[in-house]
Design a protein around this nucleic acid. Structure first.
Lengths: 376, 376
DNA sequence: GAAAGCTTCGAAACCGGTTTCGGCAAGAAA
DNA sequence: TTTCTTGCCGAAACCGGTTTCGAAGCTTTC
């Protein structure tokens, strides 16, 4: 019956096209197309007949054939920046799984790219736009002022950010409530009896770092604890810099008995610093952080942290982006999800006062001076 | 001059199409197309004129417009299986970066999907084929007999495997030389003076596990060491199962003084088992493994391991797949790359004989019996 | 009963490329 | 000079969809 027409080449199975469906029912392609796309000028009976036949014949429209007319590929773009020492790496698998899962559920696909530098990321995004490889983009790890945002805004391409930025006029975003986590951590530590609590913030280029500092300060004032600038250390995003900053904090004249880190990775360095100073985390100094890295479970004692559900974040971002592309108002597409507290052993009541702690450090220091390596 | 034609909708910048280029030069679309695609019936001068003009005008063909006629999207498919406890996770970011980098360099793109179960992976691959979203696929983590392979072979869709399988007739693949790594590890440990060396293999569903067992045995015979079945423990792919298997091996009547693990993750468990038995890795028992996980560097002492360059693997796989899609013979597209030895502290000369080691374990065991938890 | 309106669908153009076919001109062979 | 190639390119069909336009057929209205 359908015969010759679609006898595509070498072995690959002949696809059933819209023309096949039309011929099978004795209608025209245009009728089939409109029926399947919900145009109002098709009789309900006809629509039913057509959609049933399409289903039965196994017809699947070719998204790139549609795209040539509609300009839409049903594909979401995800351009990652992966530098040699990427802090986002552990989340990535879950995040990608979430994004693709949600896309898949909507019969969309995800076009992914990874570039090492900000500049290359920009140009790749540009290329994907030019080639219309994606109908919209998810931007992970947004910076305070993000060049990708300008590019996409200029080109009028839909996008959604994972994380807020300073200026999010007309932008859709999804974020995790990092500020509440930080104030929650302070509240928890204060309830345990700590009175001098320090913070190690993340890199200033990330907007969330400021939010978490704000949350930290709010936590202090909520608990009625005094704030002083020396409670906030230098930014640290890696294990080693975390160790260095923790070392500085703990060798102050009045050291904190508890430290709240903006990111888990820095917290892993705090273990090192404590150990070098003859202190034990969870005993002499309490520690809380944020991210939920699996490595935190392997530390001794386990790191108490606020965990982010990256899978859920990715899948929600994909859903929201699809809505945006379908015409939703970006200002309506904004969501804030809470992280979940993972209680392990690194936060306990203080066993020493700050003064006693300082003495312990001095005693230990007199025995063995410390050297920090600069690699890793 | 070009005016009205391509005044595409709302704000988004007007693309320059092949018709624009043709009009600009006073030739037809077909000439431009053939010139740009290297057809032999275009004069060299014309070809030059056209490609220069295309460059100058910023013309980029729309891959999905090309696809409608050619059937090719210039996109490679990557369908990952990500279950809740995925051992491949740490590699993933680098791997993806490698794949997309190589694709990007060839102005191809990567369409990615992630599914939790084997069945869903299969159906997603099927969908991507039906919708012609990818011209070929990279299959990571190949199983001994892999259902994806049958599917793709049936449909006559090009694909390349990361890892060999039992039956790789007509298949292209890229793999890392795990068997040589294992025999190299044995040779190294034998040279250090170990005479009783055990192996903890990976999951039997993975073909590489058998290869690595073979390599291990070859290492023993090369070193002139006797083999006995009790030198090979139960399979272990996780930290906890690694600990359990190591415990079994080390509590044998004649325990090994060195253990070679098929995967790093299991080796991390060996540290735990050793510590529970009152032994120190690198001192009482030597340890080598394979993968190159970053966590290995944080263990004490650092884990000596054969590291896989996932970025390079991904990028090579993408390059090879593109060649395959362009018509290369799959039997020619097979490559084996060596891992690189990362020397840290876990392999040292034996300090005890197996008999002395057994006695140490017995002495320690009489003091405190061991319980293994089953979570994590 | 004719005009007007509505519903429903066919015909054909269109999207941006690729590919087939054929024709023209120049050069080679007869 | 005529004929046959050969090189080069234009014309038009084609890929698989979407969308515009218009025209039937049926109702409704006056």
């Amino acid at each position: 019956m359908q015969s010759t027409q679609s006898a595509m080449g070498s072995g690959r199975q002949a696809r059933v096209t819209i023309a096949d469906v039309a011929r099978h029912l004795g209608v025209t392609k245009s009728t089939v197309s409109r029926a399947l796309n919900g145009y109002p000028d098709i009789a309900e009976g006809t629509r039913l007949r057509i959609s049933r036949a399409a289903e039965a014949l196994g017809y699947r429209p070719l998204s790139h054939a549609q795209a040539i007319r509609t300009g839409r590929t049903r594909s979401i773009g995800l351009v990652l920046q992966i530098d040699s020492e990427d802090s986002a790496r552990p989340f990535l698998a879950d995040f990608i799984a979430g994004v693709t899962q949600a896309a898949s559920d909507a019969t969309w696909t995800v076009t992914i790219a990874a570039e090492p530098t900000e500049e290359k990321v920009r140009s790749t995004v540009g290329r994907l736009i030019e080639e219309r490889k994606a109908d919209g983009f998810i931007l992970p790890r947004t910076l305070c002022s993000d060049p990708r945002v300008e590019l996409l805004r200029d080109q009028d391409v839909p996008f959604i950010m994972f994380g807020r930025t300073e200026d999010s006029r007309g932008c859709a975003w999804f974020d995790i409530q990092g500020e509440d986590a930080m104030s929650g951590a302070v509240a928890r530590l204060a309830a345990l009896g700590h009175t001098r609590i320090a913070h190690i913030p993340g890199g200033p280029q990330y907007f969330y770092s400021q939010l978490r500092i704000d949350g930290f300060q709010k936590g202090l004032s909520d608990a009625g604890l005094p704030f002083s600038p020396d409670l906030i250390g230098a930014p640290a995003m890696t294990r080693n810099s975390g160790a260095r900053v923790a070392h500085d904090l703990l060798t102050q004249a009045t050291p904190p008995t508890a430290i709240v880190c903006a990111v888990d990775r820095a917290a892993l360095g705090v273990y090192e610093a404590a150990s070098e100073l003859g202190l034990t985390v969870g005993q002499d100094v309490s520690l809380m952080a944020y991210d939920g890295l699996p490595e935190g479970a392997y530390a001794t004692p386990g790191l108490t942290t606020y965990a982010v559900d990256s899978f859920a974040a990715g899948s929600r971002l994909a859903e929201m982006l699809i809505q945006l592309i379908r015409g939703a108002d970006p200002e309506e597409l904004r969501e804030l999800a809470p992280p979940t507290l993972v209680e392990r052993g690194s936060d306990r009541p203080p066993s020493l006062t700050p003064a006693e702690l300082a003495q312990r450090v001095i005693d230990h220091h007199s025995k063995q001076p410390v050297q920090w390596e600069d690699n890793q």
